[in-house]
Amino acid sequence: MEAIPGPSTARKRRRDEENVPESEDYDEALSLEQSLTFSDTLVALRIMRAQFPQIEKVSVQPFILRSQLYSSVKDRTQVDRELESLRRDKVLRIFKLNTGQDDHAIMFMDDYLNQIERVIKRMAAKKQDELAVFEWFKTHVITSKLEPSIEHQELCSLLSFGGNVKDEHISLLINAGLLTRQLIDPNMYWFAIPNIGSLLKGLSQGRKELLSFLNRRRYKEMMLAPLEKKRLRLSPLDMRFHLRDLIGSGHVKTVHTPTGLVVRVSKD
Rank of each mutant, 00 (worst) to 15 (best):
P5D: 08
A10R: 10
R14L: 15
D16M: 08
P21C: 07
E22L: 11
Y26G: 06
T37Y: 06
D40Q: 13
D40S: 12
L42E: 01
L45Y: 01
M48H: 05
M48I: 06
A50L: 04
Q51G: 10
I55F: 12
K57F: 07
K57Y: 15
L65K: 00
R66A: 12
Y70N: 10
S71Y: 02
S71N: 07
L83G: 01
L83W: 02
D89W: 03
D89A: 15
L97E: 03
N98F: 05
Q101R: 14
D103P: 09
M107I: 04
Y112N: 02
E117H: 08
E117I: 03
K121Y: 13
A125Y: 10
K126W: 04
W136F: 11
F137I: 04
H140Y: 14
L146E: 07
Q153G: 05
L155N: 00
F161S: 11
G162R: 05
G162S: 11
G163M: 14
K166I: 04
I170P: 01
L173I: 04
L173K: 00
L179Y: 03
R181T: 15
R181E: 07
D185R: 10
N187E: 14
I196K: 00
G197E: 07
L203P: 01
Q205E: 14
L211W: 03
R216A: 10
M222L: 09
M222N: 08
M223Y: 15
A225T: 14
K229T: 13
K230E: 11
R231H: 02
R240I: 11
R240H: 13
L243Q: 00
L243A: 04
L243R: 03
L246N: 07
V252N: 00
T257E: 08
V262W: 06
V265P: 02
V265K: 13
V265A: 07
